[in-house]
Design a protein around this nucleic acid. Sequence first.
DNA 1: TATGAATGAGTCTTCATTCAT
DNA 2: AATGAATGAAGACTCATTCAT
Lengths: 209, 209, 209, 209
Amino acid sequence: MEETVRKPVQKRAILKKEKIIQAGFDLICQKGYYHTNTREIADKAGVSTGIIYQYFKDKHDIFMEGLSIYGEEIFFPILKIDFSNLSFDSFENILRQFILEDIQDHKLSKIAHEEITAMIHSDSDVANYFYQKELEVTEELRQIFLSHHFSDDDLFEKIHVMLSFIDSLCHEIIYHQHENMNYDKMTDIVVKAIIGLFPGIKKKNITSI
Amino acid sequence: MEETVRKPVQKRAILKKEKIIQAGFDLICQKGYYHTNTREIADKAGVSTGIIYQYFKDKHDIFMEGLSIYGEEIFFPILKIDFSNLSFDSFENILRQFILEDIQDHKLSKIAHEEITAMIHSDSDVANYFYQKELEVTEELRQIFLSHHFSDDDLFEKIHVMLSFIDSLCHEIIYHQHENMNYDKMTDIVVKAIIGLFPGIKKKNITSI
Amino acid sequence: MEETVRKPVQKRAILKKEKIIQAGFDLICQKGYYHTNTREIADKAGVSTGIIYQYFKDKHDIFMEGLSIYGEEIFFPILKIDFSNLSFDSFENILRQFILEDIQDHKLSKIAHEEITAMIHSDSDVANYFYQKELEVTEELRQIFLSHHFSDDDLFEKIHVMLSFIDSLCHEIIYHQHENMNYDKMTDIVVKAIIGLFPGIKKKNITSI
Amino acid sequence: MEETVRKPVQKRAILKKEKIIQAGFDLICQKGYYHTNTREIADKAGVSTGIIYQYFKDKHDIFMEGLSIYGEEIFFPILKIDFSNLSFDSFENILRQFILEDIQDHKLSKIAHEEITAMIHSDSDVANYFYQKELEVTEELRQIFLSHHFSDDDLFEKIHVMLSFIDSLCHEIIYHQHENMNYDKMTDIVVKAIIGLFPGIKKKNITSI
DNA sequence: TATGAATGAGTCTTCATTCAT
DNA sequence: AATGAATGAAGACTCATTCAT
């Protein structure tokens, strides 16, 4: 076999590749992988269908490259939080603030979130990407929490659990709006549960009083 | 247009319809909706492709009927739990027991779980089914919890949160096996968090002493 | 080959056959031959699909039998005209009266007319039926006209032409309604042309004065 | 949905599109719309089935494009007549000449005529095409007749009637050949009737003498 | 006679990918 | 490097007709 996928070296070519990724990722996020075809992608990117296969192995490849570029921003907004003044007192506020923002983010790219989440569960490449990413993010947060004097006991696991709790909550709020459900209360419940995961903060702060 | 879908009346035909549902649901669960074609379903069910469209509107319809039959068992095993001796002391055990069993269930139909979960996020009919089902299950559990003297404060929301916590945990354990993660600890963390959602039990029991 | 189509002898069976013909002919007239399937016919007739092939060779056969029953009434309403007082003075009135009625008939079964006309041009069996029928009707009218002292010169041809003129006119009026076209004037023109076909009437009457 | 039909830009592609139209129109005209399938069209055009849907919305679209190209020539040969020396004396000759030629034309594309006529009566797009075309042709002829001093009284209607008379006659002669019918006489009858529609010619010419 | 279940070839259409230019 | 034309296998779905009961 020959290597048929080339790396573009010229500036224009690089821009073209990026346009294809953007177009492809966008469309797949909006309409779903199986409802997006390469011609649409080419059209939206303003290129010919043929050229796509110079830069990408196949349709799937386009999506994966898009994911590697945009995935973090869409799915791990927590990385953008300013944790510089994380403390016992501020934790709940930061948490609530983040949840609010996360929900806003979700709302903006509601469909994209769902389509990608679907792929996480049906496409092993996508699953692996998120699996890996989650671990990285968890570790990153762990370092931050550690540096703010959170107890190291099972911290990795706790943060992971925290992330999944937040995810569940946001998803619930965005997609399952039901009149009989009080989402403010639900948020309170989850926030409380998350805070409960880190009794270390309290202790430390209590003892420091 | 005419109504083209018919209900089979003969015994053998009813069995055949069930076979189609089974075959279709099975295949879609194993290979995914888009990777399963009608001919495969027909072959596996031992029928001709034509007969499928006498009993079902389309491929999607087969899956939905399968979901309505098997969905509950696969996705809401909690309904099978014997809550007759639910109490402050027993709650944690019941919970842990259930989690273990749930994980076993998940393992048995690992791929099915993933494929269906994918569809929840990409197919609105499937989403609606689960959305509705979740509310029903939540309410059912709420009644049970109430009858066992759990506090009614935000009970609906709390149970819903509990369910999503359990789901997250099980999913995590089944699909994200990672060497650096201690899943026993994670289970402990989540169980504790869930118990923490229901302080009423403790109080009640404590005060009743 | 065996003879597989049976003639029903029992009363109930005859009624059943008639119901099938009625249902089939109706549906085909309303939706077109290719957009009507045997199951619909069976459903509308209140019988099973299987029984159809006891009474008819195939779908086409149903239509042809329907045509032989209902065709005359739909397509040759001129046969119902009372020509008893046909004469020079009455001819135009009878003609105009008939045209008005024909248009009403057309309007009632507008779609049927079109669908069958389509088949006349695409199905040789249907074409032959009408070909034959037209000749019969022409001859029948010729006898009537003769008995009312119309000149025998080319009478067969003239009546045939008359019939086709009437047909064209009615079709025009029913289906081609156009704002720039004055259909009353068009009717006058055609009526005049038809009367002009039979100068014999005038002469006879003129000389008899 | 996206616009999926494209215009070919390359020369060869344009030729190919034309080939598809030709093949499709031909086949449909010979075998009927419902007895022509896309594979046959592709085969006859020497292309793959896929390419068809790059240039056409569907099978129907192919036929409509064919109709817009060939329809006029097949169904309105009257447009090719040289009316430059139209006058009282020449009218009958021109008419007879045209009828002869029209019959020849009909004979050449006998089946096509019938199949398309069938579609006029069963396909509303085709019906509309002819409806519109007829009005245009009628108007065009009206202008010509006017410029040759025909009386303007109901001229539009008269020409329309004339066209339908000619149509009926030709159709009759081509498809209904019957031994007991004298078609020469029938032609005479119709020609006379048509001439009778335009008494203005005579008068004008007579008075101008 | 009658049912309605069953067949399976046939239809239109789509689309990722390759090819000629 | 780029175009867009071309491929053709594969897909969902239909339906006249036959078959088992």
